[in-house]
Write a protein that binds this DNA or RNA. Structure first.
Length: 421
RNA sequence: GCCCCCAUCGACUAGCGGUCCAGGUCACGGCCCUUUCAAGGCCGCAGCGCGGGUUCGAAUCCCGCUGGGGGCACCA
């Protein structure tokens, strides 16, 4: 029987990268096993629901390519069913009313245990199990009741969730038992921590899928990175396509210890993905990203600039800062131009007389200039770079000058020369 | 406080009793290349938390300790 798993976020905020990690492992497991991956929105507590997060969550998952089977289900829609089940338990005597709410009777001796898919046997002392409220006084079922009831309703076979749910599992097993339903298999994934060892949060940097998307990470890179947090294929494989991940993913190789989210490694991995794109794909991707972020820059120029930045930036979000000088005016820090008026004057003349005006002729001309002034190329090019790009760091100087065009290049150098004098 | 989970380089991890004086990747350091920044190449730094067992033999198994994390709601 093919497994059925689910990802069950609550609509209380944007999709957190930790949630994505859980979703991904469920998704990979389902696909590897030819099973089903379902999406369930756990919205029993309407008071905490944040508007539009239901749409955001779905959009984020789809952007990452984590699509689900069948239609999305909402916990609220199953309220009636949960209520009836609770009443049945009351009638059968395994639950009782208490101040308007309904509580499940829990055993108070022995242990409730299960063989965790990734942790092995876990035993939980029953004396620690309170009689949990399954239906609130206002008639709404609680999470700990609705969740197992729905797992049963949806024929969920494997519950893969965060380790913060470990203490809920014995309660849910007991509830299912009272309901006369066999419990699914449970597997508890380790948490993702921030660089300080604490639970990943806002102060660690990007945390929601929207933020990673806005910063210019590729979904494939993010998925690859997340897959490696708590799972590995072998002792040396790092880069894996979505299909390879699906083919290789097994619960057996999922670890139980918490992992730290390493932004530096994500940046490196994203760069690997970016560089692996063909020039055309790269330009398309960059253009789409810029459009999405609201930049109305000339397509032809973006495409031409794309070639110059592909192996220089780690994420698409770096492009505006790195190559923005091609699309708008620059501000030059005069301090960086100190003592370079003569170089700039020579450069201005050189560029004006070049024919044709191409990266090749520009390079030859400027190198000749450096020779004449008896300057190292390195030293001679700094002021020119600063004058034209506004920064000491930029794409290749000669290509940049060509792309910018003779007119603007000369104008910027002339202005810088005036400022440096 | 009680309960549960976890524990290999700074980080992610490989290791499922001998083939490990512990391998890979990121980060970091050095060198090379070089118009800046990257990218790329080469080299390097760095780890089995501690203490007891079990065993001919332990990073690997068991126990304790310590440390970290999570949970103890009519939140999810």
């Amino acid at each position: 029987m093919p497994p059925v798993v689910r990802f069950a976020p609550s609509p209380t905020g944007f999709l957190h990268i930790g949630g994505v990690h859980t979703a991904l492992f469920n998704w990979l497991f389902a696909h590897h096993e030819d099973g089903e991956f379902r999406l369930r929105i756990e919205n029993t507590d309407t008071s905490r629901e944040v508007a539009e997060t239901v749409e955001q969550i779905q959009e984020s998952l789809l952007w990452l390519g984590l699509d689900w089977d069948r239609e999305v289900t909402f916990q609220l829609d199953r309220m009636e069913h949960c209520r009836k089940e609770a009443e049945r338990l009351v009638a059968e005597g395994t639950a009782y009313e208490d101040e308007g709410a309904i509580r499940m009777r829990m055993p108070d001796e022995g242990v409730t245990a299960w063989d965790d898919l990734i942790r092995g046997r876990i035993e939980y002392p029953n004396e620690k199990l309170e009689d949990v409220v399954v239906v609130r006084a206002d008639g709404r079922p609680t999470y700990n009741f609705a969740s197992p009831v729905e797992d049963r309703l949806d024929s969920i076979t494997h519950v893969l969730r965060g380790e913060d749910h470990i203490s809920n599992t014995p309660k849910q097993i007991r509830i299912l038992e009272a309901l006369g339903a066999p419990p699914p298999e449970y597997g508890h994934l380790a948490n993702i921590l921030g660089e300080d060892g604490k639970k990943l949060s806002k102060r660690h940097g990007a945390i929601s899928v929207e933020e990673f998307r806005r910063d210019g990470y590729l979904p494939g890179a993010l998925v690859n990175f997340l897959a490696l947090l708590g799972w590995s294929y072998d002792d040396k494989t790092t880069i894996m396509s979505r299909d390879e991940l699906i083919e290789r993913f097994t619960l057996e190789r999922v670890g139980a210890s918490p992992a730290t989210f390493d932004y530096a490694k994500l940046d490196w991995l994203n760069g690997v993905y970016l560089r692996a794109l063909s020039p055309e794909e790269y330009a398309d991707t960059l253009l789409a990203y810029l459009r999405e972020q609201g930049f109305e820059w000339d397509e032809g120029l973006v495409r031409a600039a794309a070639v110059l930045v592909q192996d220089k930036i780690a994420k698409l979000g770096d492009f505006p800062d790195f190559a923005g000088f091609l699309f708008g005016d620059v501000e030059v820090d005069v301090a960086l131009l100190d003592g370079s008026a003569s170089v700039l004057a020579e450069a201005e003349q050189e560029l004006e007389s070049l024919e044709p005006y191409t990266a090749e002729t520009i390079e030859a001309g400027l190198r000749g200039l450096a020779d004449r002034l008896e300057l190292k190329p390195r030293a001679a090019f700094v002021p020119i770079r600063v004058a034209v790009t506004g920064s000491k760091v930029s794409p290749g100087l000669f290509e940049s000058l060509e792309l910018l065009g003779r007119e603007k290049s000369v104008e910027r150098i002339r202005n810088a020369k005036a400022a440096a004098a």
